[in-house]
Design a protein around this nucleic acid. Structure first.
Lengths: 148, 148
DNA sequence: TTAAGTGCAAAAACTTTGCATATTT
DNA sequence: AAATATGCAAAGTTTTTGCACTTAA
């Protein structure tokens, strides 16, 4: 059975660290690959969506997998507003997007910015860090919430 | 007894919304004003530091106050890395700083960027939002963690 | 074979809430 | 006096962990 490229990329990256590919990790990987651009999921949402599968998957494993993949730089961990920790595919090289969030109603808009990427790279390199992800979060009040 | 400017600014802002100034809110305000630039505290740390005072202050009140002040735009709420929710004074107009965080050991460096501020303003205005805060978080691996 | 991964259930950490009491205006 | 704020303790969420069992390589 032929596997997709990102699947093999993940498998390779895991092996380099003495870690293993499992059906559960594969499920999570595939879910995020298929996710429409701009959608992001919480640990619980990931779990819910993958429950219907034949392979069993526990919430603990979801947490462990999400952390692992974020540490590997495969996922971005977003904290857009109070208690909204979500994950999405990290597309550092495809030019990842940023978020404008209303702190009152949580409404979220995305935007892109090339400059941001460059700033992130410069800053990281300047201190000898190796860049994984770079997120600008703009907190604001949306038009309707300004009126309240 | 003469009160400092930010104290009165807070008091006024509260009154505009029918809210009140209390000893507890004042304590929290003063704590953040005195905090050295670049330091940020968790709810629990705020509570610990203010316990020794003569005015009593419960953890619930700390949470309520932190949320209130963040919604008012007086504090910034930072989520720098997994489980490190911290607060600091919001200095939108004094040029606030941004963070470079090692996702492995949590080591954090600060940096400033004028461009960021401008991008934030442009983006917010472009969608009719009113800007409160604008944070760039760069996730990376620090030199020592790269070696592991 | 054996080191790594999983599920479960229990625990931990963090945050919120209801209600009676106290305070600000 | 009236409405808001506080403290306490209890409940809610979310996340982590220990351990026995399973599985990938």
């Amino acid at each position: 059975m032929e596997q997709s490229h990102p699947f093999n990329a993940l498998k390779g990256a895991l092996h380099n660290q003495g870690l293993r590919m499992t059906p559960q990790r594969s499920l999570v990987m595939v879910l995020f690959q298929k996710l429409p651009k701009g959608e992001h999921l919480s640990a619980d949402e990931v779990h819910q969506r993958l429950l219907q599968n034949q392979t069993p998957l526990s919430l603990s494993t979801v947490y462990r997998t999400l952390h692992l993949m974020a540490k590997m730089g495969i996922l971005r961990e977003l904290e857009l507003a109070e208690d909204h920790k979500h994950y999405e595919i990290n597309e550092l090289n495809n030019g990842s997007h940023h978020h404008l969030v209303c702190i009152r109603c949580t409404k979220t808009l995305e935007f892109k910015s090339d400059t941001m990427q460059k700033i992130g790279e410069k800053v990281a390199k300047g201190s000898g860090f190796s860049l994984l992800d770079c997120q600008l979060v703009v907190h604001a009040l949306c038009p309707s919430c300004q009126r309240l």
